[in-house]
Simulated scan of single mutants.
Amino acid sequence: MKKLFKILAYVALVLVLAIGAHLYYLTTLAAKETYPEDTYLAHVENKNALIIVAHDDDMIGSSGTIATLCKNGWDIREMCFYQNGGLYAKKDSMKNPIRKKDLQRVADIQGLSGVDPVDFTFRNNTRSEESYMPMPYDKFAENFKIDSLTKIIAAYIEKNKPTVIFTLDSEMGGYGHPDHVLVSKIVLEYCQAHKSDSGFSVKKIYQAVFTPTLSERVMRNMPVYAAAKKVYQRDGMPFPDVQFNITANAALKKECMQAYTTEQNSLRQIWPYYHWYPASVYFGIFDRDFFRVIEI
C-alpha cells in the first residue's frame, strides 16, 4: 500500500511539474508589450458597430472584446463571405452549411444583433490549392472581383450606419491570407473615400492585430506568415494602438472559439493549446485583445 501511495504521489508530482512547465511556456508566447487601454468604445453615444471580414471565424480572436461591448449595450452585426467552386467545391458545399450554423451560434454567445453571411465567390481563380498564401497587392485586381465586392461592402455600411467597424488589418491580414487583406483594404478605402459625405457615420476602424512579440512567437513557424512578410514587404502586423482586457469574458471567448467546429485546426495554430486549459487560466495569460485604430 505504501509503495502504491509513493507511485501515485510521484506520478502526481510529475504531472503538476509538467503542467507548470507548460503553463510557463505559454507565458513566453504571450504579449510582453503594453498599450493604452481603449477608452473610446466606452463613451460612444451611437453604440452601433459592424464586423466585416472575409471568413466567419476571422474576428474570433477579438470575441472577448465583442462580447463585452454587446453586454454594454452595443448593437453589432457581422458580415462575412462564403465561396464555393473550383478545386474545393464539393468540400465547401459540405462545410459551408455547418459553418453558417456555427457562425450563428457564435453570434448568440457574443450577443450580436445578427449575422449576414453572403454567398459570393469573389476570387477569379478558384483552382488554387493554396488560396491562403499571400499575393502581391498589385495582383489583387486580376485575382479578385474587387468592384462587386466593394459594392456589397459599401451597401452594408450605408444600410447599417455604424460608428465603428471591426476588421482584420489591411496590410498583413493577420497571418497573411490575401482574402483578409482585400476585405480590410476595401473597408478602409471606402470609408476614407466617403468620410466627407453628408451623413456618413463611420468614425473609427478597429483592426484586430497581435503585438510584435505575440505574432513572432506564435506564428514564427508558419510558412504562410513568413511568406506574407516577404510578399507584403512588412516586418509583421501593424502595431496596436490600444488594448482591451478580456478576462471578465474569458469563458465566452473560449466558448466562441470552440463553436467553430470545422476550423479547430486553424484556430489551434493561432491560439496554441487554448483547448487544454480552463478559460480563466488560458486567458489569464492571453488576457488582452489588441487593435490598430484608424480615425476616419
Rank of each mutant, 00 (worst) to 15 (best):
E33W: 12
P36W: 02
E37A: 06
E37G: 05
A42M: 11
H43P: 05
H43K: 09
H43Y: 10
V44Q: 01
E45V: 15
N48Y: 02
A49H: 07
A54R: 04
A54M: 08
D56L: 11
D56P: 11
G61C: 11
S62Y: 13
S62C: 14
S62Q: 13
S63T: 10
S63E: 09
T65E: 05
A67L: 13
L69F: 02
L69C: 04
C70I: 01
G73C: 07
G73M: 06
D75E: 04
R77G: 04
E78K: 06
Y82C: 14
Y82T: 15
Q83H: 10
Q83D: 10
G85R: 11
Y88K: 11
Y88D: 10
A89H: 12
K95W: 13
P97H: 04
I98C: 07
D102Y: 12
Q104P: 06
A107M: 14
D108L: 14
D108R: 15
I109R: 06
I109V: 12
I109G: 05
G111D: 15
G111Q: 14
L112A: 09
L112M: 11
P117F: 04
P117D: 06
F120C: 08
N125Y: 01
R127F: 13
R127I: 10
E129A: 09
E129D: 09
M133G: 07
